[in-house]
Design a protein around this nucleic acid. Sequence first.
DNA 1: GACCTGTCTGTTATCGGTAACAAAAGGCAA
DNA 2: TTGCCTTTTGTTACCGATAACAGACAGGTC
Lengths: 319, 319
Amino acid sequence: MKRTATLEDVARKAHVSKMTVSRVINHPELVAPELQVVVEDAMHKLNYHPNNAARALAKNQTSVVKFVILEDVDDTDPYFTNVLFGMATELKKQNYSLQLLLKGSQLDQGAADGYVITGARTDDYPQLNELKQPFVLFGENRGGYDFVDTNNLLGETMATKYALKAGYRSVVFIGIDVREAFEFSREAGYVNTMQQNKKIPSVFRVENSLAAAREFIQEHLGEFPKNTCFVCGSDRIAMGVIQALVEAEAKIPEDFGVIGYDGVLLDRLSSPTITTVKQNLWLIGEKLAELILRKIAQNGAPQGEVFIEPTLSEAESTK
Amino acid sequence: MKRTATLEDVARKAHVSKMTVSRVINHPELVAPELQVVVEDAMHKLNYHPNNAARALAKNQTSVVKFVILEDVDDTDPYFTNVLFGMATELKKQNYSLQLLLKGSQLDQGAADGYVITGARTDDYPQLNELKQPFVLFGENRGGYDFVDTNNLLGETMATKYALKAGYRSVVFIGIDVREAFEFSREAGYVNTMQQNKKIPSVFRVENSLAAAREFIQEHLGEFPKNTCFVCGSDRIAMGVIQALVEAEAKIPEDFGVIGYDGVLLDRLSSPTITTVKQNLWLIGEKLAELILRKIAQNGAPQGEVFIEPTLSEAESTK
DNA sequence: GACCTGTCTGTTATCGGTAACAAAAGGCAA
DNA sequence: TTGCCTTTTGTTACCGATAACAGACAGGTC
């Protein structure tokens, strides 16, 4: 069986030492341009690919990033697939690979160069502080941790503006009943926009589940006049609202509008389909990977906050 | 910064050579029982964890398995999350990590010890034959490749029996319009069961999308008498069928029953909820990991076919 | 020309394991 | 007692890279 080419092979072919080849790869600025060309040529001809294990060993790294989901992965959330693929794509460029961890599994240190953590709530902060290795969060937070998230504030601002512009007289917000940063930002997006338009904001909160949202509307539909738009904290909630409205034979979108948040699958499965604030999860995944890799490379230096702009995806649930 | 313990450290503490420690880990049968105890004790006290990169380098491995999705990941399929986590959990036990590849990305050899491939169609077989490294498929196939899948035949058998037992006079099958093994098996499950019950099978096929299924019913509803149950090849199709039935104000489950296949999220989002054949995707993921790891360990030896039994999840769409 | 500088390349040791071989110790038959 | 297995443990070399240091060489200064 043919071995794959090693540094040594390339070095021999280019009539230089291993070290020079290594430098061409890692510190090209230290190598004379003519030599670079020769070496690169040899690498191509031999179809050289660095051996990751060897490099990791020499550099005392692992080439592994762990992706930790701290929420209860309601066993079938489509949410992460795209984030994962976005991340994986970026990571692979640097020959990194992934390990996936769920809540509860030990964050055993040392087996990875860094962590990407999602679903961290305020309660989890102590655990995060224990972590000796670099990590970044997926999800806005007020703990000073580096993170990537959609711009929640902007997202609900867009949604609320859209609802008003569409001509709904009343616009109410049905958020998720958790007291976490992302939710505060979404609510703020709604509230601020209402204020700016001299409207009185009206905020409700329900558990983030289809059933809870549905029940809420079933019980309170009478309290909402016609021509109301429900701006929801998630597509799940939006879908529950829609189902309740459909049951009640309310007219969508004429009498009631519904806007969701997420834009992951559900919006298109609903009937009518949901106008929603669409997150670019793939891009978020890529950014997460970039951030953690950079943080690793920079030995844990802070990377700040990255907001990804959402887009408004128009569908049948609004006029 | 405190280094993590190495073989050397353990060896010193246990007053043996590195090799003996290595043997305790990899070939304990070659080490005297008394020594094993001493060494294991030392490992615990030092909280020793083998360095994966070093091991991989010495054994000429990578500790990486690639997960390849050959289908168009309709950008938000919830399907894989569970498979991925099931796999990842098993892989981690052996200190393996994952890289994710999508259709189109080069299956560049050598960067992994093995592959788990999903969505392979007959057209993809040539590409698979090129692969020099061990791989297993997620998904029944007739190409002789090792695979893990739900028992599709059994699944639709269960579904069809259930429909008959529920008292639907007519039971029709609406499958996915691809000519692949998994679909043949599902159809066979339906057809065989019908034959055994002296009923005439009736098979239709549509694209695996909500919209396609919905249109199909919109156009052909008239042709189906009341008291018909639609056994569907996927929950997407089932959901489309249900939406069309609801629009037409048909009574579910009295006049029309609907049974889906998959049991991933959609069944519970539908209104009414869908009775479906639920796949245990997490378990499938675990098995895939076991299979590929064993295959790697056994140097590519065939691992055969593994069928995971589905369960029937009863909901509102059938009586 | 001697000396220093800066730029570039090569040498050596090392990362933490494992395989292959060598050696020591004990048992048993001749 | 000698010789030959067997069982168990140690020695050595090596996996493929990188860091740290050393050496070679060119040019500039005095």
